[in-house]
């Protein structure tokens, strides 16, 4: 397998002086293309901070981060924005959909913002993704009219819209009941198997973690297992 990304000696400190809090303490990690990894660890262990850095939404205090052969630390905001749009998808715990838009409009957002408009091809792919998520009947529904599980499936479809190499999911099932959670995980697993998309899923739930082929345990700012 080839390395999709590799981080070395990541340090992240919030605040300065006496109020400084070091969350990551020299964390190193390598993720192969096509992996489906669960990120485990207690609250405050640095899971969310690691996902944020891997998602290029934040830079570490020090350390290196290379993804698809590109140096993510040296890249400027404009380059990272374009990279994120093309190669990284996000699924958040609270789905974080755009409330004034329909399910389809939410899904096609990453492509539309790249192309400057909603193309018919983008809409067709959005419909296809929502159908695969079991939401064929909800395509044009305002997201406010969807259930929690449906919203999270819309979020997964949106994360996959630009066919990213990496999808980062921060507690994607944390706000769902067991049945909905397993339904979302089944979809993620299916996408991972069929399209080879790499997933890194942060979770506290052992059952969710068990669905993933690799478990990465973070503790006290470093990978412990």
């Amino acid at each position: 397998m080839t390395a999709l990304l590799e981080v070395s000696d990541l340090i992240k400190t919030y605040g300065t002086g006496e109020a400084a809090t070091r969350v990551l303490r020299g964390l190193s990690l390598r993720l192969e293309a096509g992996e489906m990894a669960a990120l485990l660890g207690p609250s405050g262990s640095g899971k969310s901070t690691l996902l944020t850095i891997l998602g290029t939404l934040m830079k570490p205090t020090s350390g290196s981060y290379v993804m698809l052969g590109q140096d993510m630390i040296a890249a400027d905001d404009r380059a990272l924005t374009g990279f994120r749009n093309a190669h990284i998808g996000f699924v958040f715990q609270f789905h974080n959909l755009l409330p004034d838009f329909t399910a389809l409009e939410n899904v096609v957002f990453p492509t539309a913002v790249r192309d400057g408009r909603e193309t018919p091809a983008a809409r067709a792919r959005g419909r296809d993704l929502l159908t695969r998520m079991g939401l064929a009947e909800r395509i044009d529904f305002p997201t406010a009219n969807l259930s929690g599980g449906q919203k999270q499936r819309v979020a997964v479809a949106r994360a996959l819209m630009n066919s990213p190499e990496l999808v980062l999911a921060d507690e994607p099932t944390g706000n769902l009941d067991r049945a909905s959670a397993m339904q979302v995980m089944d979809l993620i697993g299916q996408i991972n198997r069929e399209e080879g998309t790499t997933f890194m899923i942060s979770t506290h739930d052992e059952k969710i973690a068990a669905v993933c082929r690799r478990q990465i345990v973070v503790g006290d700012g470093v990978v412990t297992g």
């Binding site: 404009r78 994120r84 974080n96 913002v113």
Partner: peptide, 11 residues
């Protein structure tokens, strides 16, 4: 929402 847009690649 602005945060989501930025995360999804909106400059």
């Amino acid at each position: 929402e602005i945060g989501i847009m930025r995360a999804m690649g909106a400059g």
